[in-house]
Write a protein that binds this DNA or RNA. Structure first.
Length: 804
DNA sequence: AGCTCCCGCCAACAG
DNA sequence: CTGTTGGCGGGAGCT
């Protein structure tokens, strides 16, 4: 078969299509500077759980050739890529629109560009400038240091985006993704304090749930709709809608407090700090939007209403403080794509306000489910709108309710007391997924893609041809290759195909790209699936999990290497089990939006052994001359053995693709579907959301890793090299939206892959991929960075980039 | 000058 | 006591 090489370029080239905003780029660079990520590597792929051996990747990376081969960049080594940059990349990839909108508006203000450019010149890289920039940056860190990162670059909103980019919007329900705040902070190069701000807001929306100290579980947007619905209900019960009206009226009247001060809710009532927590405030703030007719809330009004009872609002300082907090919350919500900043004109002038972009109407259906998750508990009453009379009462009630967290949350909190031990979560934990798509690592970066499931259940798939799809899944993991025979189209079919090829434009030249297909989802939902939008029921259904399984394992976390190792093992051991078990319809998760798939399917998928879900794409530049091929990640060792020189020790199933094939696709991770149709939906949810279906990770190659399958299990303990550390970013895959910009690519193999090893493929494979990173991640985690504490604490290591 | 909001002190909490 | 969370508000960057 012919293999054409897909150069990264090819992949990347598409990226051009995206416009890169200057900002982004800039930001990226700058960001890099800022955050130097010390070690990105770590991030564990989301789904680390799988035992599957991943391998190759690391190996490849390791291969000198690969890494170095690409001369292009020095960056390879150096670059500290900016997390942000990746993010941006992702975003842009996902949906330019979104990016533009939100990013520009809020997050990235045009400013950033400063230096980016410079880098570019050097950068040879064909593709992405970004990398280049990164490279330079790396080199220049110091310079960078000089320059301070603009404030914007350090903004909470941007940070939040980075954070969100680390995880999939719709993680497989069963396999929770474990989040270590320390790791996140380290990865993002910020102090923990900042992460708390983000996490608290995310927790209020149940995007994350607290497990224990320093430990959170990532739920993504799966519960978001339900949560919002619940909040809406609660908001009505509380009478917020009335307050809003009042506020608006009063607004005109004067700054007086709209709300009565009586409420004692959370703040005072609890007495606890927690009551005043950002979490509570965030929920209230969101409630205001959800009950507002205009869906627009001014900061002033919100502050007043939220000041609640406690102090008289009169205290100006209180007000100011409240407003500050609201900005913090608003930044996070903006990053989530739930609100956007606007200005409302009033007599006096314009006041800052935020408009709700998220869903406002929820299906009842959702309710049931939602309620479960949510704290619905509290609310005794139906949520009827209250009359003004009731307001007071309502408020009173409200307080109480406020205090209560959503059930889940509450529960979690309880756990919090639990040992923080990193144990994995039940499902799987993943560690940080890494995501930034790009990592500069240069060529070495590995991208992982998850494919979502496509319509069919088949596990495999990653590369099936359409026709093949229909066929029974290939049993074995290994694929063969596809060769040219495959048409690009076949390879990637957006809509139909189950798999997406997610490509991040950002990757400038990844030497290796991993494609990952989520094992499970058999069915994909073509349509909405990905959409960020929440809510529609459809969505939910769709969402389902894709690869639930993957996650299972994982996690990795920062725990000590040993632990991780153990965990890994355990996981791996368990994986098989888990997978199966999970397979069982995990549905519990409730409405998953993404895929309509049934659980059953899932189960099926699980059952099916074979296809590899992940493929490793090796660009020709990688050193394999002209070969472009995809290696199945899951694979068993059997696959092919590459020539030593090129790739030492790899034995993998692989698929060869004509470069052309890939070239067509811009890498997209997914595109967001632009679904524009829905109003708000289109909005962007943050990247992660988009990615949901497909996830991919990009990482630097782990040098240390061996390709061996085992890898998954045994993480490499030490990734010492900075590079390694840096690596992974995971990007989430976006859902492919058929229509959307994103391109989904489905890869099909004419021949279904022949699987050598049936088993692994699927989930395991995926896991493996993730794991690999995870492995690294573990190492990473090991990295000292972690917390510093105290006032002194803060400054992370950031300053010291690990970079080599 | 006003809006934003980063930064980090330091207290509440948890173990 | 040590370490984690996170309230809080000074003050600086940005518009």
């Amino acid at each position: 078969m012919e293999v054409e090489c897909l150069a990264l370029k090819d992949l990347t080239s598409p990226r051009k299509s995206f416009k890169v905003e200057p900002e982004e780029e800039d930001g990226g660079q700058s960001e890099q500077k800022e955050n130097i990520c010390t070690e990105w590597r770590r991030s564990t792929p989301l789904k680390s759980t799988d035992p599957v051996p991943v391998l190759l990747i690391g190996r490849l990376g390791a291969t000198p050739d690969l890494a170095h081969i690409t001369p292009i960049k020095q960056s390879t080594l150096v670059e500290p890529w900016t997390p942000t940059a990746n993010l941006k990349m992702l975003i842009s990839a996902a949906s330019p629109d979104i990016r533009d909108r939100e990013m520009k508006k809020v997050l990235f203000r045009p400013i950033e560009n400063e230096k980016d450019e410079p880098a570019s010149p050097d950068a040879v890289a064909e593709d992405t400038e970004v990398e280049d920039s990164c490279q330079f940056e790396a080199a220049e860190e110091e310079d960078d240091a000089d320059k301070k990162p603009s404030r914007k670059q350090k903004s909470l909103g941007l940070l939040c985006q980075k954070f969100l980019a680390l995880y999939p919007d719709y993680p497989p329900p069963h396999s929770p993704i474990w989040i270590s705040l320390d790791e996140v902070a380290t990865n993002l190069g910020v102090e923990r304090r900042r992460i708390y701000d983000i996490v608290n807001v995310l927790e209020s929306l149940m995007i994350v749930g607290r497990i224990a100290k320093n430990s959170y579980t990532w739920y993504g947007r799966q519960r978001l709709e339900a949560t919002l619905e619940d909040l809406q209900r609660r908001g009505r019960q509380q009478g917020y809608h009335l307050q809003m009206e009042v506020a608006s009226e009063s607004r005109e009247a004067g700054p007086g407090r709209e709300e009565d001060g009586t409420e004692g809710d959370a703040g005072s009532a609890g007495g606890n700090r927690k009551d005043k927590s950002l979490r509570i405030m965030s929920q209230k703030f969101v409630m205001l939007f959800l009950v507002s007719k205009t869906q627009t809330v001014t900061l002033d009004a919100a502050a007043k209403i939220l000041i609640e009872e406690s102090q008289d609002s009169s205290s100006h300082s209180k007000y100011k403080t409240k407003v500050r907090r609201l900005y913090d919350i608003a930044n996070v919500l903006t990053s989530l794509g739930l609100i956007k900043k606007v200005h409302v004109r009033e007599e006096r002038g314009r006041k800052p306000a935020f408009k709700w972009l998220g869903p406002v109407e929820f299906k009842n259906t959702a309710n049931a489910e939602n309620t479960v998750n949510m704290a619905a508990v509290n609310l005794p009453e139906a949520a009827q709108p209250m009359t003004s009379q009731d307001l007071r009462k309502a408020k009173m009630a409200r307080h109480a309710s406020f205090n209560i967290m959503p059930t889940s949350v509450a529960i979690q909190r309880q756990f919090s007391s639990a040992p923080s031990s990193p144990r994995q979560e039940p499902a799987g934990l993943s560690n940080l997924p890494v995501d930034y798509s790009k990592r500069t690592a240069g060529n070495n970066a590995v991208c992982r893609l998850q494919f979502e499931n496509s319509t069919d259940n088949r596990p495999s798939a990653a590369l099936q041809t359409p026709a093949s799809r229909s066929l029974p899944p290939p049993s074995s993991t290994h694929h063969t290759l596809l060769s040219r025979s495959i048409h690009p189209e076949h390879l990637f079919t957006p809509s139909s195909s189950p798999h997406c090829l997610a490509y991040l434009p950002s990757l400038s030249q990844p030497s290796v790209v991993m494609l990952y297909r989520a094992p499970d989802n058999p069915d994909q939902v073509p349509e909405g699936q990905r959409s960020p939008r929440l809510p529609s029921e459809e969505g939910r259904k769709r969402r389902r999990e894709e690869g639930e399984d993957e996650e299972t394992v994982a996690k990795k976390r920062g725990t000590s290497a040993l632990e991780e190792g153990d965990k890994m093992r355990a996981a791996s051991a368990g994986c098989s089990q888990t997978g199966s078990s999970r397979t069982s319809p995990s549905r519990p998760a409730g409405p998953s939006r993404e895929q309509p798939v049934d659980e059953g399917q899932v189960g099926n998928s699980n059952s099916e052994p074979a296809q590899p879900s992940h493929y490793l794409y090796v660009p020709n530049n990688a050193g394999l001359n002209s070969l472009n091929f995809l290696l199945s990640a899951g694979q068993s060792p059997a696959g092919l053995a590459l020539p030593p020189s090129s790739v030492p020790t790899l034995a993998l199933p692989y698929v060869l693709l004509p470069s052309a094939t890939l070239s067509h696709y811009p890498l997209i991770a997914s595109g967001l579907p632009q679904q524009g149709s829905d109003g708000h939906n289109k909005l962007s949810f943050s990247l992660p959301a988009m990615m949901s279906p497909a996830q991919f990770m990009v990482g630097a190659t782990p040098y240390g890793l061996t390709a061996a399958p085992e890898m998954s299990r045994s993480p490499v303990p030490t990734p010492s090299t900075p590079e390694q550390s840096r690596l992974y970013g995971s990007a989430a895959g976006m859902p492919h939206s058929p229509s959307g910009p994103c391109q989904t690519v489905s890869v099909s193999t004419p021949e279904p892959l022949t699987p050598h090893t049936p088993k692994e493929t699927t989930p395991s494979a995926s896991k493996a991929f993730f794991q690999t990173p995870g492995t690294l991640g573990s190492a990473v985690s090991a990295v000292p960075a972690t917390r510093k504490r105290g006032s002194a604490q803060r400054r992370l290591d950031v300053g010291h980039p690990p970079t080599s």
